[in-house]
Structure formats: C-alpha cells, structure tokens
Design a protein around this nucleic acid. Structure first.
Lengths: 257, 257
DNA sequence: GCTGGACCCTCCCACCGTGGGAGCGTCCAT
DNA sequence: ATGGACGCTCCCACGGTGGGAGGGTCCAGC
C-alpha cells in the first residue's frame, strides 16, 4: 500500500459507501481511483479522495441524481438549483397525491349520479393558456380572473375546458357565455349535442376523482367521449366554502356509442 | 366483436391507458381480459371492465404501487392506509432533503475547523431509544426530555450518541454527566481518548452536514473513526434561537491512524 | 515458500413501471 | 385479395443499488 493507497474495500469503509457504489461511480467517471493496477485491475484510492466521495454520498442521501452530481463535480454552476426546483415540483405533486389518497380513504371513491343531457350550442368568449399538469389549478384560476375582468358580469354559464389527456403541456381554456364581443378575449361557439353529466361537490382540486367516475361511466356503457371535459362552475368560489362548491362536469358523447 | 368485446387498442383509448400498460396489468393478474382468443392470443375486454381499469389508472396517478393496487382489487382492506403512511414518511424525507439542499445552496457546504482533543472518560447516566432515520430528531428530543426530567440540573456535559451508520433502525442514546445515581436511567462510562472535534452552529436538523465534513476530515487524514458520533449540546434549545445553537461534534479516533 | 481466507475483478440479473422497437401474425374495409 | 391498421411476444432502456457466479490476487501466519 505505497503512498497511502487504499484498496476499494478499505476506502469504502472510510467513506461509508459500498464497494458496488464506488465501482459504479468509477464507471460513470464521478470518482476515478488514483491508480488502477494495469495487471490486476485493482482500484487504489487516496485518503484525500474521501471528501469527494463523501460529497457524492451526501448529495445522494439528498436524492440528487448521479448525473447532476457529476456536473456539480465538474464545476458547473446552477445544477443544484435546477435539482432543487425539480424536487420542489415533485414534492408538490406528492403532497397532492397524499391528500387525494386521504380523501379517498375518508370518503370513498365518488360515485356521482351520471345523466345524459342534450346541450344547445353556446356562443362564448374564451381566454386560453397552457399549464403543466401540476399547475392546472392555478392557471385556471388566473385565466378565470382575466376573463371576469374582461367580461364583467356573465350572462350565462361559466366553464373551463380541458383535454381528457392530461400529460405534457395541457391547454387550459375558460369560457363565459355572452352575446357581446369582449376585447382581450376570442370568441367561439361551444358545440351542442348529447353530454354525459355529473355533479362534483367539493374543492376544485378533487374534481379529478369525479371526472374519473364520469369517464368510467362512459366507458362502462361503451360510449366514446368526444371533445374536452367541460367544467361548469356553478358556485362562486369567493363566497362559497370549498366543501360546498358545486361544479357540473360534462363530456360530449358520440351520437352513436 | 361479439357481445361488445373490445380489442386492446380500443379499450386502451376508452380507459386512457396505454396498450403496454394493459398487457402489463394482464400479466400481473390485475386486470384480466374477459376473453383471450386461444388461437391468436388477442385480448378482448368488456366495457364494464373500464371502471376497474380506470381505478388502476387513478391509483397509479397517485403513485400507488401496482402490487398494492392488486391487493386493493382483491378486496384486502387497509392497504391504502399503509400506502398513505409510507407516502407521508417519504414526503417528510423529501421535504428535509429539499431544505438541506436549499441550505447548501444558500450557505455552501460547511467547512468547520476540526481539532483533535483528548477527552477524559466520563461517568454518565443514559436514556436510550430506537428510531427510524427520519424520526431521529424527534426521538432524540423525547429522550432528552426524559433524561432532564430524571436528572434535574446536569452537573456536566449533555450529549447524544449516534452510530455512524444511519441505515435501518438507529439506536439513539442521550447521556448526562453526573456522579449521582438516577432512577429511571442506566449508568455507564463514556470512554476517553483522542477525538476529532468540530463545532456546528445552527439548527439541529442540519447537524448531518457538519458531521459529514468531520467524517471527511477524518477520512482525508487516513484516520479510522472509532465508536459512535457524540453530539455535545452546548446551548439550551429552549432559550436559544435555532440559528445560534452550538453543538460540538466528536468522533473517537484509533490511537494510531 | 506455501496456504487459506479475505479481498478484488468482471459480468449478469433483479427491482419498479413504462416506453420503444423488432419481427411476425391477424383483422377488416376496400 | 390486398393493404394498412392493429395485435402478438420478446428484448432492451431508464436510475441506482444489491446479490451472486466464477475466477484472480493479496498478505499474514505457518
């Protein structure tokens, strides 16, 4: 063991890492042994490498991916900020998941009554945006605020439109029924026809549970959904406690299932 | 397509799942097609299976593992409670990670001054417990409260002892130096000898960063740590703001490095 | 100098859930 | 009958770690 070289096992004990981990980090170029015996392939580390090794261990214990750790060790700046931001997003998603799971455990799965209604076509003005799946709630609120500011008092229904597939970037649309033209919004006609409709009572962040039940109802009967999910906001969230918020959920149906 | 049987692609679109997922769930026995053509191997589903499929999708979107979903579908009770509890623990761990990462980003890695001190053997009384890695802080506080209640005013130092390996169930020990016998505690002698010592200033939940630096110092110099990590609590957390809490961290050294 | 046991090497597989793709067979509307 | 959409199975990839097989190496004690 000349020059204080340590074989991998001893070095591993020093750094509280496993031999497997050290070999893996070597393979990835994160922590290269000071010397590798060309004949035997034995890896030899210096005690001075312990700090780098333990930094890897520390960051791993904080769930920083090895790829990011590599970039940190290469001196790239801002890497950990990105990691932290991603972790925060992930954390928020998991918090919502736990809340939703708790809700399911407390209340059971929603089994809303589903009816088929025939909707007229409706002339509306729209405000649109795009959101990541986590940000849908906030972005929808912001769109609604913009729409209300532009429209003033709506003459008819107030609704949100969302694609059924909530992966990737999700287009968010809020619509207010009106016969007037409103600057700052675009105008459109929501198609009429048969819709499957269910009513969600409760906070907006649990709408997806009722939406799920509605989709399941449609699936069970062999219908094919058509177009986006419509959320018709019946209550005013400014004056209604979250547990009493009423929202109609509607999904268009093919004329023939 | 007799009796309303749907081939896998159509059923997948109905349930917002991928064909790959459905095949996987079939393989795991979570959702078996109503009929499998024995000649072609084609899977055929009934529309009535959509609700089960979407329940799988819903629970998956909440990060419930497929194995747990399987047990839910088998009617086993209490499964989701366990999942939720595990998620909560995981969430707490991730929250701590993000906080620690933020701390590293704000303050940089701690680079405490490390000194070698020679400690006398000390007679102490002990309170012990066991904790999962997440609960160490809370359990240590609880032990300390018990110890203080039993000892009253300590005559000497007040310390916590923790193994260097914080995986699995971690034994937690708090010690108060005293010459008296104290009912409700056990008595022991902390060995003396050379110790590497560093001072942590700041909240207790960031002690691990300084402990890491101390271990790295030991590793860099080729010493071998001996025995548990000692945390000597210098400040009174009841009267000191968290940012000013002073803790000495000490790790025993082999006489010969 | 020899030997045994601890240590090291490489290579493969497993976990979990999903997606991609190769290579090939099947269904159905034209 | 034929083309194109759709189905099948089987393999590989991701990230990070552990387990294990099969084989070579080091060193302390004799």
């Amino acid at each position: 063991m000349n020059e204080g070289h340590l074989p991998i096992g001893r070095f591993a004990r020093l750094c509280r890492l496993s031999v497997k981990q050290l070999r893996h980090y070597d393979e990835l170029g994160l922590l290269t042994p000071d010397r590798i015996d060309p004949d035997t392939g034995y890896r030899y580390y210096l005690p001075g490498q312990a700090r780098a090794a333990m930094l890897i261990g520390l960051l791993r214990s904080l769930d920083v991916p090895l790829a990011s750790i590599g970039r940190v060790l290469d001196g790239e700046s801002g890497v950990l900020d990105g990691v932290r931001d991603r972790m925060r997003d992930d954390l928020a998603r998991r918090e919502r998941n736990v809340v939703a799971l708790q809700r399911i455990l407390s209340d059971g799965l929603p089994r809303p009554e589903v009816t088929v209604v025939r909707e007229p076509a409706r002339r509306v003005v729209l405000v649109r945006d795009v959101a990541s799946p986590e940000r849908i709630g906030a972005v929808t609120s912001a769109c609604m605020a913009r729409l209300m500011a532009a429209v003033g008092t709506p003459e008819g229904l107030l609704a949100g439109l969302f694609p059924l597939d909530l992966t990737g970037e999700v287009p968010v649309t809020v619509a207010a029924e009106t016969s007037r033209d409103v600057p700052g919004t675009s105008e459109d006609v929501l198609p009429g026809g048969p819709f499957a409709s269910a009513t969600h009572v409760g906070p907006y962040d649990q709408i997806s549970l009722t939406a799920h039940a509605l989709l399941a109802w449609i699936g069970e009967r062999g219908h094919t959904p058509r177009g986006p999910l419509r959320e018709v906001y019946v209550s005013d969230p400014a004056t209604t406690p979250p547990d009493r918020l009423v929202t109609h959920l509607m999904i268009g149906l093919e004329d023939e299932g």
